[in-house]
Structure formats: structure tokens, C-alpha cells
């Protein structure tokens, strides 16, 4: 087994272990780790089974196998970034709702205070 392959297998396993540790210590949410795990397993499969990359390249009609790897990786990263944009949009929508709610509650508290002061 060539050294490069051994290194890439070790690298892939380390990434997976790191991901598991992140989720285990609650620094990464399960739902947001799925795509990363998927990519890590693609790494691992390609490192373990060298023929896979060649086969994928032929399947996609790409003459140079490493180019297929780059393509798959870039698509993976693209999807993850897009996923983040969706998550951020959702977060900023919720953030906006909370902002408005704070404003409305603040007004309610002020009115309540005035009312209580009036009772005294």
C-alpha cells in the first residue's frame, strides 16, 4: 500500500474521530454534522478503495481521476456552504422575531409599571 494511501486513510479516520468528538462535546449539533460526516466518509471510501475514484472518473467522463475528486469535493463544500446560508437565513428570521418581541414586551413592561405607579 503506497504511503500516500496510508496517510489519507489515517487523515480520514482522524477527521471522523474529530467530528465525533465535536458532536460528543456538544460543540457541533448532530443535525449540522451530517453533511460533514458524509464528506468525511467519501474521503475514507476513496482512500480505502482506490479503484472507486477511477470508476467515478470514468462514470463522469473525466479523463484525469484527481479532477473527479476535486469536483466531488467542491460540490460537497458548495452544498455545505449553501446549507449554512439557509441556516443563517432561518436564524436571522428568528432573531428578527425575537427583536420585535423584545420591543413589544419592553413597551408592555413600561405600561405595566406606569399602571402600578398609578395605583400607589
Amino acid at each position: 500500500m503506497p504511503i500516500f494511501q496510508i496517510l489519507s486513510i489515517i487523515g480520514s479516520v482522524l477527521i471522523i474521530v474529530f467530528l465525533i468528538e465535536l458532536v460528543r462535546s456538544r460543540r457541533l449539533k448532530e443535525s449540522y454534522s451530517l453533511l460533514w460526516f458524509f464528506i468525511a466518509f467519501v474521503f475514507l471510501s476513496v482512500s480505502l478503495w482506490r479503484g472507486l475514484l477511477e470508476w467515478l472518473a470514468v462514470f463522469m467522463g473525466i479523463g484525469y481521476a484527481p479532477a473527479a475528486l476535486f469536483f466531488i469535493l467542491i460540490m460537497g463544500l458548495y452544498l455545505i456552504s449553501l446549507h449554512f446560508s439557509v441556516v443563517i437565513s432561518r436564524l436571522s428570521e428568528k432573531n428578527k422575531d425575537l427583536n420585535q418581541e423584545i420591543g413589544l414586551l419592553d413597551l408592555k413592561i413600561k405600561k405595566l409599571k406606569e399602571w402600578i405607579d398609578g395605583m400607589k
Binding site: K96, N99, Q100, I102, G103, L104, D106, L107
Partner: peptide
């Protein structure tokens, strides 16, 4: 005037919507 103070700047859309929420409630 009744005043709603939003904790940070939302932009015109968010501000107007806060007013609609007040109107609705």
C-alpha cells in the same frame, strides 16, 4: 406617541412589521 424601542436596527421592514404586530395584538 406610544414608542417601541427595538434592541438593534432591523431595517425598515422589520420595524414596520413590529408595528403590525402591535396593531394585530
Amino acid at each position: 406617541a406610544t414608542v417601541i424601542n427595538l434592541p438593534y436596527n432591523l431595517g425598515i421592514g422589520g420595524a414596520v412589521q413590529a408595528g403590525f404586530k402591535y396593531a394585530k395584538r
